[in-house]
Simulated assay, not measured.
Amino acid sequence: MDNIHPNSARAWLLASRPKTLAAAATPVLLGCALAQATGGFEWIPALLCLSFALLMQIDANLINDLFDYTKGSDRQDRLGPERACAQGWITTAAMKRGILLTTLVACALGSGLLFYGGPELIAVGAVCVLFAFLYTAGPYPLAYHGWGDLLVILFFGFVPVGCTYYVMCHGWTPEVAIASLSCGLAIDTLLMVNNYRDREQDARSGKQTLVVRFGAKTGHLLYLGLGISASLLCLFFIHYGHFWAALLPQLYLPLHLLSWKRMVEIDHGRALNRILGQTSRNMLLFGILLSVGLIL
């Protein structure tokens, strides 16, 4: 990718990391499915929720790109996808302007949800923006102190699933709680395999992820447990009369187990990027299966 011109449109596209956007769209999809199941689905707030989620994911990607670079974490031995600032595709000054613009556009679109969900969504939006920065920025970057997995469950589970449902149905149900937790656990498998792959580089950079703290074996067991827990949690939907929402997500489990087996066999190196791709596919499939099950 040496032919990428600095601050070009292609550079910004790569910096936005479009392959990660499925993780932002999946919780909104589930929130919409929950709303549809109760007869409260509306297109405009659904599109606003999706737009805000996608823009905040891009914003977080840009913020991580900038602050991981300034902290020296994006080293020459990086195993994951190349980062824009580290590669010189985008200057730090341009990246700061891009982060500001993306944040403002996300907030502008998100403000449209106030007409549907009420002023309490201001606080939710502010927390989303704040933690997008706190993840890798500031004197206590949360990702560097082992809080990443909890934040994924919160901000890719409870917040987007619950808020998408709330702006259309103005409430909270046990089904929303189950779907939120299941979604957060499934998406956290992405972070877990990412941290598993980068454990040696993260240790040298002082990034104390759970895999760095507790070791590779704990990392791949957590990956396994996250996917199994996400799938089995859906069985609780039977209690609320959603048979298909309980059954269909179980089809995700064999794929997750197969990815885990390959992950353990590969163990380390850039070859684990294949497992990252498989995990992203599995996560998206989980979201689709659960959404279809809820609607049925």
Rank of each mutant, 00 (worst) to 15 (best):
I4L: 10
I4S: 05
I4M: 01
I4T: 08
H5N: 15
P6R: 15
P6Q: 08
P6W: 10
N7I: 00
N7E: 07
N7S: 01
S8D: 01
S8Y: 05
A9M: 06
A9I: 13
R10D: 03
A11R: 03
A11G: 13
L13K: 10
L13Q: 15
S16F: 12
P18Q: 05
P18F: 03
P18K: 02
K19C: 07
T20C: 05
L21P: 02
L21V: 05
A22M: 11
A22K: 07
A22F: 14
A22G: 15
A24M: 02
A25I: 02
A25N: 00
T26D: 05
T26K: 08
P27I: 08
V28C: 07
L29N: 05
L29C: 05
L30V: 15
L30Y: 12
G31W: 00
C32W: 04
C32T: 11
C32V: 15
C32M: 15
A33G: 12
A33R: 11
L34D: 02
L34T: 03
A35K: 01
Q36L: 15
A37K: 04
A37L: 04
T38K: 06
G39I: 02
G39R: 04
G40D: 14
F41S: 04
F41P: 00
I44L: 14
P45G: 05
L47R: 06
L47Q: 04
L48I: 08
C49G: 03
C49D: 09
F52K: 03
A53H: 01
L54H: 02
L54D: 03
L54S: 06
L55E: 00
M56Y: 04
M56H: 06
M56R: 08
I58V: 08
I58H: 03
I58P: 00
D59Q: 12
D59H: 14
N61S: 00
N61L: 01
N61I: 02
I63T: 11
I63R: 09
N64K: 00
N64T: 03
D65M: 10
L66S: 05
L66Q: 05
L66Y: 12
F67M: 11
F67H: 14
F67N: 10
D68T: 10
D68S: 15
Y69D: 13
Y69Q: 11
T70L: 12
T70R: 09
K71P: 06
K71D: 14
K71R: 15
G72K: 03
G72V: 03
S73G: 11
D74H: 13
R75A: 02
Q76N: 15
D77V: 11
L79C: 01
L79V: 02
G80A: 00
G80Y: 04
G80P: 01
G80N: 00
P81F: 08
P81S: 13
P81H: 11
P81G: 10
E82M: 14
E82I: 14
A84H: 08
A84G: 13
C85W: 07
C85V: 13
A86Y: 01
Q87L: 06
Q87T: 06
G88K: 14
I90Y: 01
I90D: 03
A93H: 14
A93V: 07
A94K: 13
A94F: 13
M95H: 08
M95E: 04
K96R: 14
K96D: 06
K96Q: 14
R97A: 09
I99L: 06
I99F: 08
I99V: 07
L100I: 12
L100C: 10
L101D: 13
T102A: 15
T103Q: 12
T103I: 12
L104R: 04
L104S: 09
V105F: 10
